[in-house]
């Protein structure tokens, strides 16, 4: 089937079998191998990308269902030598060891900042109707869909905290 996706700002036409996931379209059809295949079952988050601005698991998304959608992958954020604030903060804080989960972590954090800005609560929010605090506990809960088997979580959290304002987080920081 012929579909058109807007990938990192550019219209891309692909002719695919309906079984093809968004993740496989990126990696196999468009040579965008930044998004990673970890578990391929929605459990690890390595394939996280933004679809129409929201973070999703690319491995659990049939590309034919996303005809016309806007996709942002890690390749859409920055380039070597011109890193996005979040990418630079991951480097600065050792937010990885092997690096395989990193594109998913970064795309998930991008989506999470937006969810904070919209005032979405989480499982650890004390008050469902209040503006959520940008606290470490909130970050950990909201990032639980991204596993890091090297366990670089302290660096990942620090990178996400450090670059939040540069990445456009507008919600109030927790008084910690």
């Amino acid at each position: 089937m012929q579909i058109t996706l807007t990938v990192n700002g550019a219209a891309r036409e692909v002719d695919i079998d309906p079984r093809t996931t968004l993740l496989d379209v990126m990696r196999h059809h468009l040579d965008l191998t930044g998004s990673k295949k970890g578990c391929d079952h929605g459990q690890c988050g390595a394939c996280t990308m933004l679809v129409n601005g929201r973070r999703i698991n690319g491995c659990l998304s049939l590309a034919v269902m996303h005809d016309g959608d806007e996709i942002t992958t890690i390749e859409g954020l920055g380039d070597p030598g011109n890193l996005s604030p979040l990418q630079a903060a991951f480097v600065r804080n050792d937010g990885y060891q092997c690096g395989y989960c990193t594109p998913g972590q970064i795309m998930s954090a991008k989506g999470m900042y937006d969810e904070f800005n919209k005032g979405w609560p989480s499982h650890v929010s004390d008050d469902l109707t209040a503006e959520p605090n940008f606290s470490t506990a909130e970050i950990k809960e909201r990032m639980s869909g991204n596993l890091c088997r090297c366990s670089a979580y302290p660096g990942i959290c620090k990178a996400i905290e450090e670059s939040a304002e540069e990445e456009g987080l507008t919600t109030r920081k927790a008084a910690e």
């Binding site: 929605g42 988050g45 996280t48 929201r54 973070r55 999703i56 698991n57 659990l60 998304s61 998930s108 989506g111 999470m112 969810e115 609560p121 989480s122 499982h123 929010s125 469902l128 909201r142 990032m143 639980s144 869909g145 991204n146």
Partner: peptide
């Protein structure tokens, strides 16, 4: 709200 937020992950809840 509480039940939904206790389930799955941010990515999965978005889909």
């Amino acid at each position: 709200s509480r039940a939904l937020l206790a389930g799955a992950s941010g990515q999965l809840r978005n889909k």
